[in-house]
Design a binder for these strands. Sequence first.
DNA 1: CGCCTGTTTGATATTCCTCAAACGTTGTGG
DNA 2: CCACAACGTTTGAGGAATATCAAACAGGCG
Lengths: 256, 256
Amino acid sequence: MGDRELRSKVAARFETPCTRCPLRLLPTFRSFTADELEFIEHFKIGEQQMPAGGTVFDEGQPAKHLYTLLSGWAMKHKTLADGRRQIINYALPGDLVGIQGAMFGKMQHGVEALSDLKLCVFDRERIWTLYNKHPGLAFDVTWLAAREKSIISDFLVSVGQRSASERIAFLLLSLFVRARNVGLVASNGAVQLPINQEHLADTIGFSLVHTNKSLARLRRSGAFEWNGSQFRLLDEPALVKLAGEAPEATGPRPFI
Amino acid sequence: MGDRELRSKVAARFETPCTRCPLRLLPTFRSFTADELEFIEHFKIGEQQMPAGGTVFDEGQPAKHLYTLLSGWAMKHKTLADGRRQIINYALPGDLVGIQGAMFGKMQHGVEALSDLKLCVFDRERIWTLYNKHPGLAFDVTWLAAREKSIISDFLVSVGQRSASERIAFLLLSLFVRARNVGLVASNGAVQLPINQEHLADTIGFSLVHTNKSLARLRRSGAFEWNGSQFRLLDEPALVKLAGEAPEATGPRPFI
DNA sequence: CGCCTGTTTGATATTCCTCAAACGTTGTGG
DNA sequence: CCACAACGTTTGAGGAATATCAAACAGGCG
């Protein structure tokens, strides 16, 4: 699909002007000047829907676009020649997807929709305009890249050093906190987690069977419930203790 | 040490004007305009030496400065409460150290000198000027952050999915290639690797004993020699095969 | 020499993987 | 409505990979 088609296709669906973006109301995001907002709205070339299981990027694919996740969950992953898969990170609403594509021209990992998605579409080429005209937003892009580096580093520490139950607890906790920051957690601590135990296993670096058994052991702690799609945190301090430490918090963050 | 002292201390040692930086001659780095070079030289507030084993950043430390490694090797690491340590990445000449500090105000991992270092020192505050005046260099900073994200992701794939010998082979290969890109490898394939087996173990996520035994097995392949401080690659295709795949190559890269 | 640091080796305990099968839920076609 | 396929979860058993403990070994340096 060429740029022109995409632009016209999504134009009709451009339902969310950035000035009235529901995400911006969340306290986790920094406030933006009217000038910045106007630029971002101009920078955005459309909106795109994607069903659960859909492919946002293939690994190695040349990248024309850059996305911000407006709603839904996605995962970033790499697959080895023999099929082993490592999940690198998850993307939640407000997260920028495809920075690597914008920098290097192609994606070095795949991105797949875990739930139905709504994506804001940006033109990769025009990121130069952003850097030229809005240094503050350019700084934000770097900030978001550094934030993801930090998250991935934390996962690396988990996979390299932590025990099975620590890894599971840390991952669940960090996903929960990220979901809560973007308003996805109900007041009773429940959130829809669109991942299964195989995703969990491929994130923490264990086999499915071992992950299942470790998770069962962890469940008995009573710190959380997780049946099928709904995760509910019952005792946050207990889960922090099981994880060994709480994930990094960075305070108010930008988003594009 | 206050800014003033540092600036005066390092001023006397400001031996490497950016316009005559030896690193810039390497083909791995992109060429810069005279304008950019002049700015960088102004941006640089000094040079700093550090002996092997020295601490560039403590974990959690508020960061005033940002560094580019001019010569030597460093490592970035995180340490858990009970002492377990995960090495996140290595820094080689030309690598930017402390982006996280520049973005978040504090470092979320420690940085330690593996060999004697020469560092170019930049003032964190003035990175705003860089973003305001030189969008191209701002893009470069983002590029470098994305590159490190990519390297760390590769390590995560290793630690999460690869076998012991694959992990060791992949790490050695990727360090070798990075060293070669910055001219540290002699024509016979030899390079001084300032790391020991404990560093190796803390990078790949295995115990020291298991790392030692796996390394011994790998040595018998004859793809490389590594005695004490000198590493020598004898058969690159063989090591690639042992690693499973070659590390990502990104082509000419910027540096600040 | 004696001390320090880093490497190597062996023995044993634990964690983790693989294989195989059963179980539960959901959706679909007859 | 039932049969049954598809998918995800759970369980058991045996084997491989990895950790831990302990000790010996080698080189550099006072």
